[in-house]
Design a protein around this nucleic acid. Structure first.
Lengths: 188, 188
DNA sequence: ACCTGAACACCGTTCAAGT
DNA sequence: ACCTGAACACCGTTCAAGT
């Protein structure tokens, strides 16, 4: 990459991080280009789609989550490992408000720039779930895709201003369905 | 209302139903006005906000769900009543793809045209939940707002093309967290 | 009392013209 | 090889002018 191109790329990414943090994943791309002092076409050259820009923003964190999953598989008990990892996923998607819907759509869209990241998360979750199921602590009638859907729906709850306050509690409620032994059922 | 105004109102509503069914709750209002052969200003006169238009579309179904809740309270066992009603809510919001986020936002926004409908659903659900909790079949650490959030997040899952196929199953999973006795936990 | 559509301020996306 | 911004086709929303 040419030096000036690299500079533009870096500036776009840095500005995009701020703008997305402020406006959410559906932020105005025009605004990003403007604030980066870069032509609109330059943004599209580096990031042909909104998904490509988001992927560049998310890549580091997603990679970190997949390596964390591998670590947890070795270091923690099956239920704690799964819970801790799910919490990490929810925290990440919460950093990019509104990204959950895009990520979910990318799960079955091999052409999406977010597809690989999405599948990575899906697979890491699947491994932790399989392990918990083998240890007989997770319900066995769900698979990795079901788990992905549940965690995505929790992330969606975190993103709704009117529901965000109860999101932590609802995380526990849904977790208790996945890991029945872990938390109380709320009925005595 | 003047006769011509009434005609425009009815036509807008009828066209909106089709367009929303096709494009979802974020459909182009311009498109609705165009297809109704009505000036754009006329649409805004009758429905000052997108929420107002949606509210007019949803009103009948929401009212039906609240009366259904009252019926179920008398005719069915607590757990069956709650489950049947939740299924109805999910089915309704699924008819208006993308409306879940707007409905959720309206829960705490008293100025939203959808607020009343939202609160109606919230309260009907709360009554059915209270009854199930009193009968000791529903977990007692959640309230009506938590239930609303859970059903909204399920509706969100139904709206995601990549997850819709498992939505029925995930409905059962989440339901099993709310009503622990009802369905199996998936662990033996 | 109601309707109309132009006007304004925004988008996303593409692409000819520049360096 | 890369950048630029005008151009195009869309929005939502408002409001002066009409009937």
């Amino acid at each position: 990459m040419r030096a000036d191109a690299q500079k533009n790329y870096d500036r776009l990414l840095s500005v995009a991080r701020d703008v997305v943090a402020e406006q959410g994943a559906d932020a105005s791309l025009r605004d990003v280009a403007r604030k980066a002092d870069v032509g609109l076409g330059t943004l599209y050259r580096h990031f042909p789609t909104r998904e490509a820009l988001l992927e560049a923003l998310l890549r580091t964190d997603v990679d970190q989550l997949t390596t964390q999953a591998a670590d947890l598989e070795k270091s923690s008990a099956p239920e704690e490992a799964l819970l801790a990892w799910l919490r990490g996923v929810v925290a990440l998607t919460h950093e990019y408000r509104g990204a959950t819907t895009l990520l979910t759509a990318a799960l079955e869209d091999a052409d999406s720039a977010l597809h690989a990241a999405c599948v990575g998360l899906h697979d890491a979750g699947t491994r932790l779930l399989d392990r918990a199921q083998a240890a007989n602590v997770a319900r066995t009638d769900i698979d990795g895709t079901d788990l992905f859907a549940l965690v995505a729906s929790l992330a969606w709850i975190y993103d709704q201003p009117s529901l965000a306050l109860r999101a932590d509690h609802l995380f526990d409620v849904v977790s208790s369905a996945v890991l029945p032994g872990q938390v109380g059922s709320g009925v005595n």
